[in-house]
Amino acid sequence: MIRQHRASAALALVCAVAGAGLVGCEEARTADSKPSASATAAGGADGAAENTSFTGTKKIEVEGRSVNVSCSGDPVENRPVIVLLHGGGDGLDTMADLQETLGAQHRTCSYDRLGAGASDQPDGPQTLEDGGKVLTEVLDQVAGDAPVVLAGHSLGGLIAARYAPDHQDKVEGLVLMDATSPTQSADLQEEIPESATGTAVDLREQTLAVLRGESPEKLVVPDGEVRSAGNIPVEVIQHGKQYLAAVPEYGQDLELAWSEGQRKWLAISSDSELSTAENSGHYIHVDEPDVAVAAIQRVVSKAAG
């Protein structure tokens, strides 16, 4: 059983009104969050073979930048490697318990994107294509020739879903945990008018700023159509505790728009399913870890076929 982090709907709302609740929230980290493995591997370019079998945390070099990665569990023949992607403002520490649990049966890794956690800062604004190049190098070094299942939370879910269609030779399954909507900017501007005041306008403006790249990651995230990744197994999980409903005046409409955003992600595959984590706020893998684990294991089993 994964250790509970005591993240609550109230905390998720604090994240939302601070402007990050729709892409992730640094405030959701807890004091006892830790890297997913007890040992830390030495950094440096040790070669692909060593990288695909190490456990613990280590730094790898990606195009001259240092990227912090963490892996648990041993490679399993004919099974994809699970790679976890954290939300905006977070780091791989928020995935630590999920990774530890999955690592008991599967090779499972996570990484800090540039500008997050212990990875280097980006030199300037990053596009999704830039982030995809980093992800490709991470996958090459931690998974080698093995296929992968990507499981992303919030902004990490959006990144995984944007990446998969262009890498169908590598990505054999997706789990999107309350992923940021593919049309998040338009959703916010439609549901919260410019005439809004107070909490609602703060949520809109600060979240839009993050999507424009005004965050430590400097990642620019434009709206876009959902592209197909073929018929890979995909599970989309949305939150059940309607924390956005607490936003004065516009909360219910925000919840409806969020649910619609989750349904849009179903178009990524002909084998996709949507479910609701009834007792979860935005951080499904923290509030209901068993739900997240079960979904990832189902996708891994389907992908292994």
Rank of each mutant, 00 (worst) to 15 (best):
T180S: 05
V300E: 01
S185I: 13
D140G: 10
G173D: 04
P193N: 06
V299I: 07
Q297Y: 08
L11K: 08
Q206P: 01
H282N: 12
S8P: 09
S215L: 09
C71T: 07
P248D: 09
D253F: 05
A246C: 07
V293G: 09
V175D: 09
A229W: 02
P75Q: 10
Y163E: 05
E205N: 11
G124W: 11
A37G: 13
A96V: 12
P193Y: 01
S110A: 14
A45I: 01
W258P: 03
N279H: 14
V201G: 05
V83W: 04
A200F: 00
N231F: 02
G124M: 09
Q206F: 14
G240M: 09
G44W: 13
A37L: 10
G224K: 08
E205T: 00
H106Q: 06
A9Q: 06
V134A: 05
L13C: 03
G117E: 09
G132K: 11
H285N: 10
Q252K: 14
A200C: 03
D202T: 11
A42C: 09
R212K: 14
V149L: 13
V69H: 01
V221R: 00
A292W: 01
E77H: 10
A48I: 01
I232L: 01
D112R: 04
A42Q: 14
R204K: 12
G281S: 15
D46K: 15
V300L: 02
R298M: 04
A294Y: 03
Q252L: 13
P216I: 00
S280D: 07
D32F: 13
A229F: 04
I82W: 01
K34S: 13
A20S: 15
R6V: 08
G88W: 04
R204F: 02
E255K: 11
G157H: 03
T57D: 15
N279K: 14
D46H: 15
E190F: 09
G156Y: 02
A294P: 00
F54W: 04
N68R: 13
L102T: 04
L13A: 06
Q105C: 10
V149P: 11
V201L: 12
D169I: 08
G251F: 00
L139Q: 07
A295W: 00
P35M: 04
S272F: 07
V236Q: 10
A45E: 15
D74I: 10
D253T: 14
Q168K: 15
S272P: 01
A292Q: 05
S181E: 05
G230E: 07
A164R: 03
E63L: 12
A96E: 07
T197C: 06
P222C: 09
Q99I: 07
A16F: 03
S270P: 00
G152Q: 02
L266N: 02
E214G: 08
T40L: 11
V149W: 10
H285Y: 04
